[in-house]
């Protein structure tokens, strides 16, 4: 059983085709990296998977439960209540963090578990403190997001997503908004999650992360997955000329 299954996804914005038949399966515990040139549709794919965009065509399933089926070449989504339940399956880490600025770090981590998942406040707080400990932010529970560095904010937002116990975590360029010296602390938290067996789909420009930390790498170009395979293979023997061209650009060789 796959945690995430996307089949034959098409998506256009105002007549501009952005995704043109994307299929993707992610098994439990897999870490999948998604790379590709700017504008190739990586974020759009992630946003469709996170139910932030509606697909024009194609199917979407989480652990075998259907979020969108295809009928007459159109995606037909499950009723709202069901989608609401399905959101429990995933978490999303944004490039721009999107923490709630009016809540403390602790409240950012506990508000949804209490309000949405109905957990007790005490239980949610205990867990939030454990997560912060893991993120190396134990002393920041009472701080407001504006008092933290970008790297700290991004680690809080990873913890916020984890606090809802998702089966899969989506990341959209989690380090792109960070200064180079802050990138490392976020990547090392992500590596740790990967080692702990978290299922992850990571859009990234950090080729070292894709190469060393992921089980599988997808290369996207012009709205399709142009090549996929084990990272060693993609990075050392890319088959597709587009992949070669892209990698020689970003790796500088």
């Amino acid at each position: 059983m796959y945690i995430l299954e996307i089949d034959n996804l098409y998506k256009q914005f105002g007549g501009n085709p952005v995704l043109r038949g994307v299929s993707l399966r992610i098994a439990e515990g897999e870490v999948v990296s998604l790379i590709g040139p700017s504008g190739s549709g990586k974020s759009t794919l992630l946003r469709c998977a996170a139910l932030l965009e509606t697909m024009d065509r194609g199917t979407l399933r989480f652990s075998g439960r259907t979020a969108a089926a295809e009928r007459d070449s159109r995606s037909v989504y499950a009723p709202r209540q069901q989608l609401h339940q399905l959101r429990r399956n995933f978490g999303l880490v944004f490039q721009s963090f999107n923490l709630f600025p009016h809540y403390t770090v602790l409240r950012n981590l506990t508000d949804a578990p209490v309000r949405v998942a109905g957990r007790s406040r005490a239980e949610a707080e205990d867990e939030a403190r454990a997560l912060l400990q893991k993120m190396g932010l134990a002393d920041k529970a009472g701080a407001y997001p504006c008092e933290l560095s970008g790297g700290q904010q991004q680690r809080v937002s990873i913890a916020r997503a984890l606090a809802m116990h998702p089966k899969i975590l989506f990341f959209d360029e989690p380090t792109s908004a960070l200064d180079p010296e802050l990138t490392g602390e976020v990547l090392s938290v992500m590596r740790q999650l990967a080692d702990d067996g978290m299922t992850m789909l990571v859009v990234t420009h950090e080729m070292s992360f894709a190469r060393d930390a992921s089980d599988r790498t997808l290369f996207m170009a012009d709205g399709v997955i142009a090549e996929e395979g084990a990272p060693e293979q993609i990075f050392s023997q890319p088959q597709n000329p587009r992949t070669r061209q892209f990698l020689s650009g970003v790796l500088g060789r």
């Binding site: 139910l51 932030l52 959101r87 999303l92 721009s96 999107n98 709630f100 949804a112 949405v116």
Partner: peptide
């Protein structure tokens, strides 16, 4: 208000009313 606030709340499972009232 930045869109990201609505989107973060939506992904965390807040209803529309909860998002408006609390976020």
């Amino acid at each position: 208000m930045p869109r990201g606030q609505y989107e973060a709340a939506q992904v965390l499972g807040y209803s529309r009313a909860q998002t408006f009232a609390h976020i």
